[in-house]
């Protein structure tokens, strides 16, 4: 006898793909598809006024890390690009560490408030999260620029005579990124801490652990998934940051995002821009995969 339920299943499957069609169409058209075209562009020759010549070339990929000396035509590492990559990775790691330093106690503080207060405290974290990134960056700029609040205050107090130069430095980019991405660290940390069973903490104290040992041996291992999630959530957008380094770095402290933009503006080297984009994407994907693996390893330990 024929399987009566298979006809019903075929129908359900058709209905499912029909429902998915509009979303998938838009996502292919304006997200996934263009990425493939970008990949293709990275293997083409740059046009004279931007755009590309349809001529295959490895040049763009070569130029991501290497350069040929203008004078003696020798091969060498591209110092400019490497220093930008290094700055991006360095600043992103520092941002992640600083966000963790500030975010962990903050999330813990919220998670240990009485239940009714927690949502209110979290709202204070969520509001900046949903506030325009540009506005938040701009708010920090106002604070630290030469005629900004901090310098004006210090001069008025007589502590300094002339403004301290803070804007357009690596420090200002770091400050801006920590400020902007901090909520991304607190959200997953809080999510894992809220589920923390405090009878386990009690058990730790009962078994002679000090506060620091309870933190290190009980709390930290239990909220590790939150720490990993928060770190990735901060690291990934930091690495691809564009607005914050542009506004806080003022054009002389480039990060990868700004280097990419440069190729589509003054640089007029679209294939190089495309190759740099794909490189950034690859680094991010590796980070995300490391995260998935780490999260997967955590799974058996969860209750």
């Amino acid at each position: 006898m024929a399987d009566l339920s298979s006809a019903a299943e075929t129908q359900a499957s058709r209905r499912r793909w029909l429902l998915l069609a509009p979303a998938l169409f838009i996502l292919v058209f304006a997200a996934a598809g263009p990425l493939l075209i970008t990949l293709v562009y990275s293997f083409l020759t740059p046009g004279d006024y931007g755009g590309v010549e349809w001529q295959a070339s490895w040049q763009a990929w070569f130029n991501v890390f290497m350069e040929r000396d203008i004078f003696d035509d020798t091969l060498g590492w591209s110092d400019a690009h490497l220093s930008i990559f290094w700055r991006s990775v360095k600043l992103s790691l520092m941002t992640t560490v600083l966000c963790l330093f500030f975010g962990f106690p903050t999330a813990y503080f919220i998670a240990t408030r009485p239940k009714k207060q927690r949502d209110l405290w979290m709202l204070l974290i969520i509001i900046p999260f949903w506030t325009n990134l540009l506005i938040r960056t701009f708010a920090v700029v106002e604070l630290i620029r030469a005629e900004g609040t901090v310098n004006t205050l210090l001069i008025w107090l007589g502590i300094i005579d002339s403004p301290i130069h803070m804007l357009f430095t690596e420090f200002s980019i770091l400050l801006g990124m920590v400020y902007v991405y901090l909520p991304l660290m607190v959200l997953p940390l809080y999510a894992s801490m809220e589920r923390l069973d405090f009878s386990l903490v009690e058990a730790g104290y009962d078994l002679y652990a000090t506060r620091l040992k309870v933190l290190r041996r009980v709390i930290l291992p239990l909220v590790k998934p939150g720490v990993i999630a928060g770190s990735i959530l901060v690291f990934v957008p930091s690495l691809g940051a564009y607005v914050t380094p542009r506004v806080m770095g003022g054009g002389n402290q480039l990060m990868i995002g700004n280097l990419i933009e440069l190729q589509f503006g003054q640089g007029r080297n679209w294939p190089l821009g495309a190759a740099l984009s794909i490189t950034l994407l690859a680094i991010v994907m590796v980070a995300l995969m490391a995260y998935v693996r780490a999260a997967g390893n955590q799974e058996p330990h969860r209750v």
Binding site: L35, T38, I256, E261
Partner: peptide
């Protein structure tokens, strides 16, 4: 596919759309 815009850095999507 659905979550892709959350994972791909904005600058990469921006450049891809520009092209």
């Amino acid at each position: 596919m659905i979550n892709q815009p959350l994972m791909v850095p904005e600058i990469v999507t921006a450049v891809a759309l520009l092209i």
